[in-house]
Amino acid sequence: MSDDTRFEPTDRSEYDLVRAANVIVPLSPLRKARVCGALALLGALAAPVVATLPAAVRDAAFSGPPLATPLGVAAVVLAGTVAAGLAGLGLVALHRRLARGPEPTDDAVWSFLAIEDALTGIGFVTGGLGVGVGLSLLASGHWGVDALDALRRNGVEPYLSVSTVPVTPRLTSAVGLVAGLAVLAATVVAVDRE
């Protein structure tokens, strides 16, 4: 399966034609994997965002070192990062299977499309929301203590320490860096092997 969308319809396989008419997000699996890799890589921003919080926010919100404090929001970012990373690797594997052949049969085409759509949903929705919302909450302290007080009045505690889930911003950043680079490297290897 080609990553190039400039083919004439007569040059496309049956799978490509059915996929073009029925897939939810009209990108190739390899391009979707790259987006998932970028989302996972964004998870690596958790530690830098927390490390650059103003001193007044660090004093008001943390009892210990901010990078080593287990935070519920860091767990949200980690969940999004892992979802995006795994979905990206799954999309790379799907791309490799389709490129390697044989072309899927009529019944298998729909199974492959369902797998692609499921991986896209996991990567874009679960990964995107987890990383986006989590990083936004982690960054909320950059607007000052007043912004944190406003969030708390609305029932949101962005720096809630959760000792039962030992996920720190440092751990989240490490996983984001590894997952994002692994997916992006897999997309390069998948293209080079064709």
Rank of each mutant, 00 (worst) to 15 (best):
A99P: 02
A84P: 05
V133G: 06
G134R: 01
V18A: 11
G64E: 05
E14F: 13
L135G: 08
R152E: 00
V25Q: 02
G134H: 00
S28M: 12
I122K: 01
A84E: 07
L135Q: 06
A84C: 13
E157W: 01
T81R: 04
F124P: 06
A179Y: 02
T172N: 05
V188Q: 14
E116P: 08
D59P: 02
S63T: 13
D11C: 06
S63A: 12
A74R: 04
V167C: 12
L138W: 00
V189G: 04
T164W: 04
G88L: 06
L113K: 11
A40E: 01
L91C: 04
A185R: 15
L98P: 02
A79S: 07
G88F: 14
P9I: 11
W143F: 12
L177S: 15
V82I: 09
D4R: 06
P102K: 13
A118I: 15
G141C: 04
A150Q: 01
G132K: 04
G144A: 07
L67F: 11
S161L: 14
S140P: 05
A114R: 15
R170T: 09
D149L: 08
N22S: 03
G144E: 04
T168H: 07
A55T: 10
R193Q: 13
P9M: 13
T10W: 13
V183H: 00
G43V: 03
S63I: 15
P66E: 01
V156G: 00
T69A: 00
V77M: 01
V167E: 04
G141F: 00
G132M: 03
